[in-house]
């Protein structure tokens, strides 16, 4: 009797918390969509920040995130492959794993400050490279751990079967094991990209911001996230509207990348 009652109470409580949680999420998304869509115009995408648009911000954000991925993905993947396939789980491997886990949970603002001290302060000006470096540092540990974990899911029999057919270790890893882990690794890369594309803190005092369209990474570099941070605090209505529009676009991008990643995992063989 008692247990049944307890069951009911817990069921009601957990349903309630789920409903509350989902309502808040829904509320945020609804407000964002309503305010965002009503502030969106065609010119929002064709004009730069200086003229009340987000074109240069989108291009800037993607430029930094893509360059960061181009550096972080190969480094992270090779490190992950080494950890899982070549280290024989030795001392060095456990040090690197721990370090990478610590880095992954480091607050992103700390990474921002670190990069500021190393790549902004000595040069005396904010620059896009510093932003790229901060994002790269954020991304590498995520890629390492995804690669490491996804390779760990590949049964060791598959490696043995490859070796037993007369393969060398590196050929089997590159041609079979990576392929078997491909979906998981790709998903991890997508999710980590979604993660860094929405980051503000690592960019705030590295790349800072730029009103104008630029591809010059040695100077201040435009980004959506830092712009939202700035615009939201401006007193004028136009700025705040633009902040809503930019937030909506950013959320949509992150959502789409995330959903693509999840969809891929669901359809995994």
């Amino acid at each position: 009797m008692n247990r049944l009652l307890l069951n009911k109470i817990i069921l009601v409580l957990s349903t309630l918390s789920a409903v509350i949680g989902i309502s808040f999420l829904f509320w945020i998304l609804a407000t964002l969509t309503y305010k965002g869509v009503s502030s969106l115009h065609l010119s929002t995408f064709t004009q730069d920040l200086v003229n009340g648009g987000i074109r240069n911000l989108l291009v800037g954000q993607f430029t930094m995130a893509l360059i960061a991925s181009a550096i972080a993905v190969p480094i992270g993947m090779f490190a992950g492959i080494w950890l899982r396939e070549y280290s024989n789980q030795n001392k060095l491997a456990s040090i690197i794993r721990n370090l990478s886990d610590v880095m992954m949970s480091a607050p992103s603002i700390v990474i921002g400050v670190f990069v500021y001290a190393l790549f902004v302060a000595p040069f005396g000006n904010y620059n896009g490279f510093a932003g790229v470096i901060a994002l790269t540092i954020m991304m590498i540990p995520i890629i390492i751990s995804t690669t490491d974990n996804m390779l760990a899911l590949v049964p060791k029999e598959l490696r043995e079967a490859g070796i037993a057919l007369g393969g060398s270790k590196h050929k089997i890893i590159m041609q079979i094991i990576i392929k078997a882990a491909k979906v998981g690794i790709t998903t991890g890369v997508l999710l980590s990209f979604a993660r860094i594309i929405g980051e503000t803190a690592p960019l705030l005092f590295t790349s800072a911001n730029n009103q104008f369209f630029t591809m010059d990474l040695t100077g201040q570099f435009p980004s959506l996230t830092v712009s939202i941070y700035n615009l939201a605090t401006y007193p004028d209505e136009a700025s705040r509207e633009l902040a809503w529009a930019a937030s909506f676009v950013l959320t949509a991008i992150v959502l789409i990348i995330n959903l693509t990643g999840r969809y891929m995992t669901r359809n995994k063989k």
């Binding site: 029999e157 598959l158 043995e160 079967a161 057919l165 078997a180």
Partner: peptide, 22 residues
Amino acid sequence: ENDLIRLRQDVGMIFQKPTPFP
């Protein structure tokens, strides 16, 4: 490693669980 590869071409192995490559 090359000699071991040659050995494994002469001595094949089948495992308990089927191990098709992807």
